[in-house]
Simulated scan of single mutants.
Amino acid sequence: MAPSELISLADDEGNSVTVTVSGRDPRWSAGLAAEIAIRTPFVTGRLDLALYASKLDGWKEALDRLDAGQDVAWMEMSRGPSLRIQLNGERDCPEVVVDDESGSMVTVRVPILLPEDWIADHRQRLRQVMDHWIPLLSASRSE
Rank of each mutant, 00 (worst) to 15 (best):
I134R: 07
E76S: 15
D25E: 13
V96A: 13
F42Q: 12
E116K: 11
A139Y: 09
S78N: 09
R123Q: 13
L51P: 01
K60Y: 14
L113M: 12
S16A: 10
G31K: 05
S29I: 08
D71V: 02
L83P: 02
T44Y: 02
G45Y: 06
L137C: 08
P111I: 06
E95P: 08
T44D: 05
K55D: 14
A37G: 07
L87S: 03
E35Y: 10
T40F: 02
D64Y: 02
R79V: 09
Q86G: 11
E95H: 06
E101F: 15
T18R: 04
L47I: 05
L137K: 08
P135V: 09
G89P: 00
S4G: 10
V108I: 12
R91Y: 07
A120N: 07
N15Y: 03
G23K: 08
R125D: 14
S102N: 09
T40G: 01
I7R: 00
K60M: 14
V108K: 03
V129P: 07
Q124H: 12
G31I: 01
G23Y: 08
G89N: 01
L63M: 11
R39E: 04
R27T: 11
D48S: 15
D64N: 10
Q128T: 12
L136K: 11
P41I: 05
L114Y: 00
D92E: 07
W74N: 14
D92S: 09
S22Q: 11
T44F: 04
A120E: 12
L113V: 13
S29L: 04
R127P: 02
G89M: 00
A2V: 01
E116H: 08
P111W: 06
D12W: 00
D131Q: 14
G80C: 07
W118C: 05
D11A: 00
A139G: 09
S16F: 01
S138C: 12
A53S: 13
L56A: 11
R84D: 13
R79M: 13
D48Q: 14
V98P: 09
D57F: 09
I36E: 05
S82D: 03
P94K: 01
A34Y: 02
Q70T: 06
E35R: 11
M75S: 13
R141P: 00
D25R: 05
V21N: 06
A50Y: 10
Q70Y: 04
Q70V: 07
A30E: 05
P41D: 10
L114F: 01
W133N: 11
N88E: 05
D57A: 15
S78V: 13
A33M: 11
D121S: 10
L9D: 00
D48T: 10
Y52M: 10
S22D: 11
R39S: 07
L113C: 04
D67M: 02
D67H: 08
M75N: 15
R141H: 10
G14K: 02
A68S: 12
D67W: 05
G31R: 07
A33H: 04
S8V: 00
G23W: 08
Q86N: 10
L87A: 02
Y52H: 13
A73N: 08
P3T: 06
S142V: 12
D100F: 08
E116Y: 03
D67E: 14
D117I: 01
T18L: 02
R65P: 03
